[in-house]
Nucleic acid binder design. Structure first.
Lengths: 133, 133
DNA sequence: ATAATTGCAAATTTTTTGCAGGTTC
DNA sequence: GAACCTGCAAAAAATTTGCAATTAT
């Protein structure tokens, strides 16, 4: 809990119970959409409103605490901001697994005449445990 | 025009004027969202409704004619289905440029224990012409 | 004490649906 | 001519807004 408070303050946001709850929900899930956050957070704070979640998701994005992960055919998910990584999205079970980008991958993304700032890589396929089923 | 008709029929869809218009709009723009398609298409067919666009975007996706390109912080865009490629998204001027994936890139995306079907790569940065401004 | 944040209800925007009339093959 | 598609209007879903009361620093 205290780490979410620090995370918020480091990024110029007041540490409200609503915000730490939202962060906790995102952190635990890894990748989660707004409705799921709402369901999650209502357990502990039944009065926490959807409007508050919307407002804070926007705010935390602009303050670099969380990152949007736009998804094909469904609502965007959100994750805590971390080092660049790729998403392995299992088309069978739906889980999203983070994978570090290797130096090799980074190099492979070099494009002439394009000043790369940030890359977003989603790989769709079948995860290990679904393969062995 | 005739090529859009063929494209539709090849994918088990009737060739209506609404569908060919939508395809033409997507094709010309390269990457375009629903509202922009609507604006576009209304020029020639003022009665073409937004509902029809929504219905057909879904249908054409399921029939593999077009592909959704989910975007960070804005509505999804759509493009004609083509070979796997990466998107170079310019953060200054907003243009989206397609880039072929090199063999090297493909190889770099190999991940152990994950059966890759399809990859989605968006690179955010500054395009050539914005750099030289 | 001050400025920012919350929750509610209402407004707005986006997307989906049902169906009568029209079109494609 | 059968099955499918369209456009409209209405419904449903998603997101944003305004504001009085509350909370963080």
């Amino acid at each position: 809990m205290t780490n979410y408070i620090t995370l918020l303050k480091e990024n110029d946001l007041k540490a409200t119970i609503q915000r730490t709850s939202i962060l906790k929900s995102i952190d635990h899930a890894g990748h989660i959409n707004i409705d799921e956050i709402y369901e999650d957070v209502k357990e502990l704070y039944p009065t926490l409103s959807l409007a508050t979640i919307y407002k804070n998701i926007i705010l935390m994005q602009t303050n670099n605490v969380i990152v949007e992960v736009p998804m094909n055919g469904e609502k965007s998910k959100y994750e805590l901001k971390k080092d660049e990584h790729m998403h392995l999205i299992c088309q069978e079970c739906g889980t999203i697994q983070d994978t570090k980008m290797t130096k090799r991958t980074q190099e492979a993304l070099f494009i002439e005449n394009f000043k790369l700032n940030h890359s977003q890589i989603n790989l769709y396929g079948v995860c290990n445990s679904c393969q062995t089923k």
